Simulated assay, not measured.
Amino acid sequence: MSTPTVTTGPLRRVPVQGRSVARVQRMLDACAELVDEVGYEGLTTTLLAERAEVAIGSVYQFFPDKRAIVQALAMRNMDAYLQDLSTRFGRETFAHWWDGVDAGIDAYISMHRSVPGFRTLHFGDVVDVHLLDAERDNNAVIAERLAELLVDQFQLMDRVRLRFALQIAVEAADALINLAFRRDPVGDEAVLVEAKALIREYLHRHVDA
Rank of each mutant, 00 (worst) to 15 (best):
V14S: 07
V14L: 13
P15M: 12
V16Y: 03
Q17F: 15
Q17L: 15
G18L: 15
V21N: 07
V21R: 15
A22K: 15
A22T: 12
R23P: 01
V24D: 04
V24T: 08
Q25G: 05
R26C: 05
R26G: 00
M27F: 12
M27E: 05
A30V: 02
A32K: 11
L34D: 09
V35N: 05
V35W: 13
E37S: 11
V38P: 01
G39V: 07
G42N: 03
L43H: 01
T45K: 06
T46V: 11
A49K: 06
E50F: 09
E50L: 13
E50A: 13
R51F: 04
R51Y: 07
A52I: 08
E53W: 05
E53T: 04
I56E: 06
G57Y: 01
S58E: 04
V59H: 11
Q61C: 02
F62S: 03
P64A: 02
P64R: 12
R67W: 03
A68L: 08
A68W: 08
I69F: 01
V70R: 09
V70M: 14
V70I: 15
Q71A: 13
L73F: 12
M75Y: 14
R76Y: 05
R76Q: 15
M78D: 00
A80H: 10
Q83F: 04
S86Q: 11
T87N: 12
T87S: 10
F89M: 11
F89E: 07
G90I: 01
R91S: 14
R91K: 15
E92H: 10
F94K: 08
F94P: 01
A95Q: 10
W97T: 00
W98P: 03
W98Q: 08
D102K: 08
D106L: 08
D106N: 14
D106V: 00
A107R: 03
Y108A: 03
G117A: 08
F118K: 07
